[in-house]
Amino acid sequence: MDFFLQQTINAVSLGGTYALLALGLAIIFSIMGMINFAHGELMTTTGYALMFAGLAGLPFVIAAPLAVAVAIGTAMLMERIAFRPVRKGSPATMLVTSFAVAVILQTLFQNLIATRSQPVILPDALAQSVAIGDLTIGVNQILSITITVIILVALNWFLKRTTLGIAMRAAAEDFSVARLMGVRANAVISGAFAISGALAGAAGVLWVAQRASVDPLMGFVPVLKAFIASILGGLGSLTGAVAGGFALGFIEIFLTAYLPEDWQPFKEALALGIVILLLLVRPNGLIPAFNIGREKV
């Protein structure tokens, strides 16, 4: 029972990070109809910001929000420089653009910083844990769960209670009509990128806090997980992205926890198999977007 509880906590913690990542992809997709494959590079940027902040001697409590701010800025710049000119292009054009942005950033990191992985200085507290009864919960996990909850609550508040938030939901559903309401496309898209940058930044801090290093290609695995999670949840659906993230976390953790040893080498394939099965049952994802198939900006 303790084993099960412990694994459940592990799954919530991992799923939460996936949820943040998937949400970052979903919020852009819902508005622009584009999968931003450069989302992972926003995380990498966060990692490098943490690294430099650490080298400059800044304490983690300052470095972390600073790194998130850098991710927000980078996301907005990315939109302004790379995506705005192709906004009216075909989905394929936007997709290729996002790949290009990802590769350009990776190359910049390699050439301007280093090809090899760089250590990130982290407080030792992050590598410690708290014992609650028979359970051991890593400080890292507590941080991950707390940040995920705070962000989900804050984002929910923003999307439901502020005019910009409501405008973003409206734009996600029907951009032309949102413009008829005087909703400025630039403001909404820029806002969406800022939020996705914040989500990538938060996930990036959590990711780096786990691995204590950053390298130019760090963003690849997380963006892949986010992609799987957001497809599983329902592409473009924000609630779906969160559900997909948690579902993926639970699938991965519980396969590792309960699969017999001989089967362990196939767990990644099995996890994807389960995702595909779920999609066969629910082709539009766990919680489909409201406006599947409607044209975007």
Partner: peptide, 22 residues
């Protein structure tokens, strides 16, 4: 617009709030 195109996932009041943006 034709076909109403209200924001179906938003509440009635949220739809009206959006109308007031200008």
């Amino acid at each position: 617009p034709e076909g109403r195109r209200i924001f179906g996932s938003l509440t009635v009041e949220e739809n009206l709030t959006l109308g007031g943006i200008p």
